Simulated assay, not measured.
Amino acid sequence: MKIQAAVATAPKTDLDIRELTLDAPRADEVTVRMVASGVCHTDAIVRDQWYPTPLPAVLGHEGSGVVEAIGSDVVDFKVGDKVVLAPASCGVCENCISGHPQYCVDFYDLNFGGSRTDGSKMFDDNGTAISSNFFGQSSFASMTNVKARNAVKVADDAPLELLGPLGCGIMTGSGAVINVLQPSPGESVAVFGTGAVGLAGMLGAVASGATTIIMVDIVPSRLEFAKELGATHVVNSKEVDAVEAIREITGGKGVNYALDTTGVPAVFSQMTKALATLGHGVLVGAAKLGTEAAFDIGTLLTSGIQISMVVEGDAVPREFIPKLISLHEKGLFPFDKLVKTYAFTDINQAFADSESGVTIKPVVLF
């Protein structure tokens, strides 16, 4: 069928909205009519070829929509179901079956390879194949084919125009805190970066009952917004030493838990030094392949800290996304306050506003 899609053609170049042909769903796929898709930093860095997904490509990986057709082997969906789309995983490797699909042994190929595992691509542009299956979905398209395993069914009255980012950015930040760090009520958390992922992590800390929640950034307006959402303290690391400020706030101890959403080497180093003895820090921010950061193994050896690298919040999407929706419905996870919507035709403006910081979490509506 003919569909509309935003095609990434070259680094630092606006996406090109084109009419493409979408093939039929394979036996294990569903065809989804997209209602909305979040715009994520990962879309931008893949467009810019930090990761070598072949271009031209249809990106997008925070999709939500309605099932329009089902493959012959699909038994857990029907036409008309509302779904939120999540990253791809094989479902059969040791990591998948042990409850860690975000560390699937085939994660890179399934999500960044630009095609199905058999090499086929679902989009065609007048005879030219366009890279597809980005994060298992390529949601910058009015219709797309998705492995049923990647889809999470939601309620018939679910606000699809809002829920797409739960499949990546919001899941990443909140999952890193709730699933990995697991702060207990009364403990302390520092979050470096006040973008969508960082603020989602902060909301996860609030929902977990942490009572000292420190947000670190260099944008005063973002820090003030973080305080409105539940941060107990904010640190402008452009004006003061972040590590010293965190230790002052915590009575010299440092924080029990910390989250770096920036992927900036200097910030990562600050996070490691801001932890209390036996603290746990998590990195979720993406950096260019080969990026290295300083780690003071001499000073930190006796601290007993843990450092984890975390993908997609180490979440099982069909379990975790409904939990986030439930928290939101009860007013305990107001991630909607991060979202600003754009028409699909304004997708390049959404990218620009995300990069400049004007918008925390852009979502394009079809």
Rank of each mutant, 00 (worst) to 15 (best):
G313H: 05
G38C: 09
I297F: 07
L278Y: 03
K12F: 06
N145K: 02
L327Q: 01
L166S: 09
N236A: 07
M34C: 13
T172R: 07
R26Q: 15
D156K: 11
I297P: 00
F335G: 00
L85A: 09
R318K: 15
A155T: 08
T13C: 06
R149W: 01
D109N: 14
A352R: 02
E292V: 10
Q102N: 14
V191L: 15
A27S: 15
G251T: 10
A176P: 08
A245E: 13
A8Y: 12
R26P: 05
P165E: 08
L259E: 09
K82T: 04
S138A: 12
A148M: 01
S89N: 15
I360Y: 04
F268L: 12
D125K: 04
T262M: 04
F140T: 05
V206I: 04
L301Q: 12
Q182S: 07
L199R: 07
C168M: 09
C104K: 10
C104A: 12
N111W: 14
P87F: 15
G91W: 02
Q182D: 13
V235P: 12
S120T: 15
D157N: 14
A205I: 14
Q349V: 05
K330N: 05
G298Y: 10
D346K: 13
C96Y: 04
D157T: 06
V240H: 02
G193T: 01
L55S: 10
F333T: 00
E29L: 05
D48M: 03
V146M: 09
A276Y: 02
K337F: 00
E312D: 01
I218P: 05
T128W: 00
Q49A: 10
T262R: 01
A151S: 08
C104V: 06
V243Q: 13
H41A: 12
M143W: 00
V74T: 11
L229E: 13
L229I: 11
T172W: 13
V240W: 04
C104I: 02
F335D: 01
P52L: 01
D48V: 07
A242V: 11
N179C: 01
V358D: 15
S326W: 00
S308A: 15
V243P: 10
V180F: 04
L162E: 13
F107M: 11
P165W: 02
P185H: 14
F344R: 13
N179R: 02
D106F: 13
I218W: 03
S269L: 00
E94L: 11
L283C: 08
K361P: 02
G298R: 09
Y51G: 07
I321W: 01
V154C: 09
A226E: 06
A276S: 14
T212S: 14
V7W: 07
V363C: 07
A6G: 05
G65Y: 11
T194L: 04
G71A: 08
S237Q: 08
S184R: 13
V234Q: 03
